[in-house]
Every structure is written in structure tokens, then in C-alpha cells.
Design a protein around this nucleic acid. Sequence first.
DNA 1: CCAGGAAGATACGTATACAATGGCAGCCAG
DNA 2: CTGGCTGCCATTGTATACGTATCTTCCTGG
Lengths: 248, 248
Amino acid sequence: MNQRQSMTDAGESGGAKPRRLGKNGDGAERHEAIYRTISDAIIEHRLKPGARLREDALAEVFGTSRTGVRKILQRLALEQLVTLTPRRGASVTRPTAEEAKDVFDARQMVECGLMPEVARHIKPDDVRELRDMARREREALKSGEQSRAIKLSAAFHERLAQLSGNATLAAFVGQLCSRSSLILAVYGSSGHLGCESHDHDDLIGFLEAGDGERATAFMGRHLKAIEASLSIVEEEQEAPDLHEIFGV
Amino acid sequence: MNQRQSMTDAGESGGAKPRRLGKNGDGAERHEAIYRTISDAIIEHRLKPGARLREDALAEVFGTSRTGVRKILQRLALEQLVTLTPRRGASVTRPTAEEAKDVFDARQMVECGLMPEVARHIKPDDVRELRDMARREREALKSGEQSRAIKLSAAFHERLAQLSGNATLAAFVGQLCSRSSLILAVYGSSGHLGCESHDHDDLIGFLEAGDGERATAFMGRHLKAIEASLSIVEEEQEAPDLHEIFGV
DNA sequence: CCAGGAAGATACGTATACAATGGCAGCCAG
DNA sequence: CTGGCTGCCATTGTATACGTATCTTCCTGG
């Protein structure tokens, strides 16, 4: 556990020459990669809600120090993917039923509201890209790779939002999609995945035709369908009501 | 109990050596307070866009170490209030014209979309609270305290969003309002502040009457008015065109 | 007189060490 | 036998030290 790799200055020991072309982004890129790895693991449900994320363990796994891990954890916490409890560390967020409703209401508002803009801005290249994403999602679903399908579905919705041209709202939609993956992990029934097979293709069709109105309505139904497929039951993991359980 | 640690006074006068001041359990609270202090300073334009925020200086001012400052800075960066350029430190974000448009488009969508919910959920106590906030804002505006007025205006909009009951969207609106303050700092004309004097009072009236539709329309006009009052001109902050400046 | 480079200073990024806190288990008293 | 308490352990939170990159300034050459 104490092995620290000194690969950073492996080839520059002798020179010590200040390089004008500073490849400064090395550390930042690595942390970005670690962030994405953890984020993907959460979104793909390889890390289940409630799983504890110890800083030491993560630091060892990724070959970095706790400092960098903490930074990543804080970022994930601000995106609500992990919960940071004050002296007890980080764990994958377990969304409450109320949060689930808020997230889907927000998606309903923002994603539907974005459809007209998307229909106006979309270009043939975008259509091809979206169709490719939808195809890969369908394939993943067909071959039983639920994790991959969920991630691809979230990526599809996020990409769609990006096409609106509003980076702020697109980033927000991205967060909402990530949180939706968590919600699916907790409240989703196993047999029924998030997005139906052909919904995304149909949506692309409306957008390609420039029919923002119909795309908006379709997106609304699409999201409602996902939300309706959830079995949102309060699990009372914190305070099981013994009176109710034992019937007194 | 082990109280072997004596509280050392936090002398903030010049020349004070970075001394370990009492770091018993209120560390989180103190950092929260520091975060709010910096955030307020930015929102109130006491820290102008482009101002550099050196970690050492902040650490010394607030009597903490760079570690804590970094955490706060990262949080502010994720909320887009400060920009973190690798190897060059933090500075107050200078929003671009495009970002300004995105932010106001987002506010248009979300805040207007929230009005019906707010009109449905609002209670007499909330009405009183909002009226009080609007009154304080008006007073600040009348007495020429632009900084205070801007902060109160942002707080008003954020509180309004909270009344919708959707915490996720409310938090998003809060971020948008903070960024709007920055945008006002850069693009706002000095004479014309963000929100008109009686707009907020009129809005409260619609909401109190439960007229979500009219409130939505009014909020839309309100935000459009703010956006229209901006003088969005590209300032070419990076490459000042000397030829143009010196007339050839 | 100007330009280019080198050296020093400054400030950020990372790692590590230390301190404090929450949880757990074993022990004692009622 | 049950309930509370006190000690230890594990883990996080904070601070400091070090390495490195960038920026500034000065010196030298053209």
C-alpha cells in the first residue's frame, strides 16, 4: 500500500530544463479520468446507493493521495451523486422519494422546454450521432447489459440538451440524468428499464422534422412513462415504524 | 474531557502570524461562514469580476489554512462564481455575453415554469415574508445601496423558487441568481438596477391571488426587462485592440 | 535602443503527518 | 440480565512541507 509510483519525472531527471510547452494538464486530466470512472461506476450501478466510499481505499485503488480523492468526492457531492456526512465519510447517495419526484419534475420542465430549441438547431450530423447513440443503447438493452444501457440513455438525454445551445441548461440536465440513474437503481423495477426501446428513435424523428411541438409532447410522455415505471415506496430504512409493523 | 487546548485570539490586525486558532468541532460551520462571506462579497460586487483570489491571502484573512480555502474555492468554481484556471489560481468569473444569454434563458424557462406551483403552494406566512423582502429591497434601492439591493433581489427570486416545493429546481434557481448578479456587475448600466421597484410587489399580488398564469406572464416580462436593461457588448478583455483605441 | 533569455520569486498542486471525532466493544454496576 | 460507561480503533479533517510551473525582472547581445 506504500508503493508510490514516481512516474511523473521518470525521463526528465537529468535535464531540469524549463519546458515552454508545459504539459500542465497531466494531473488534472488524471483526476478528471478518476472522476469519470467513479461517476460512471455510480451511474452504471456498479456502485450501489448506500455503498461507502472510503478515501483511503479510493486513493489506493487509483494510485493517488487522499487529497485528490477528496476533491473528486466533493465534486460528486455537489452533484448529489455521493453524500458527504460530516465525520463519517462519503457514500453513494440514496435518493429519497421526494428527491426522485423533484428530479423528474425538473426534467419534465427543462427537457420539454428545451425541445423546441433543439428542433430548431439540430443538424444532419447531430441526427446521425443521436441515431448512433440510440442504436448502441438498443443493442446494450438487447444483450442484457443494463448498466451500459442506463449510462447510454443518460448520455443520450444529455447530448440532446447540449444541442439546444444553452450550455447552462445542458449541464443541469446532465446532473439530472445522473441522479435519475441513481433513482432507477433504488426505485426501478428490475425487468423494466428506464427508456423504452424505440422512444428515442421516435423522438429523433420529430426533431429531424423540425416539429418541436410534437417533440415536446413526446418527451413529456417519455419522461412520465419512466417515472411511472418506478415503484416508489418509502423503505423507511432509517426509522422502521415498529408500531405499524407489529400492528399496535 | 480533554480541554487542553486554549483558545487563542484571532488577531486579524496586520502582521499577525498564522496562528492556530481554536479548531474544535465548528470547523465545518466556520468554513460555511467563510464560503458565504466570499459568496456575498462577489454577489454584492465588492469583489469585481476578474479580481484574483489568491489562496494564501484568503487563508490569512480568514485565519485558516489553504486547504480549507481551496475547498471553498472549488465549491464556488462549481457554482460558476469563480473561475479556476490551472496553475494560475482563482479569480471572480467574468461572464461572457453568451453565458449571460444562457443564464437568462434558463431563468426564463425555470422561474416562469415554477410560478404555477408557487401560486398553488404559497401561504399567508410566505406572502408576508416575501413582502418584507421586497420592502427591504426597495429601501436599499432608495438609499442608494446598490450592493444590498442586488443581493436582496437575488434572495427574493431564490426564496420564490423555494416556495415551489421543488428543492432541486430551487437550488438551480439560486445558482442562476448568483450568476445573474455577476452578469449585472459586468453588463449592467450603473443607473439602472436589476429589478424595478414595484415589480416584486406586483408579482406577490398575483401569487397571493393564486393566479399562476398571470404570475408566469409577469415573471417573463420581468426577466425580459432585466435582460433588456443590460448593455451586452463584447469587451475584448483579452486582446484590447490598440489600433482601435488609439485611432489607427 | 530593443529583444531574447535566464534566474529568481511567487503561487499553485500534491503528499504526508497529526489531531480530533464517531463508533464499537468490553467491563462494571444495579 | 440489562443498561450505562469508559477505553481503544478506525477514519476523516486540517495543517504544513515540498515540488513544479509560471511570471517578472534584469542582464546581455545584436
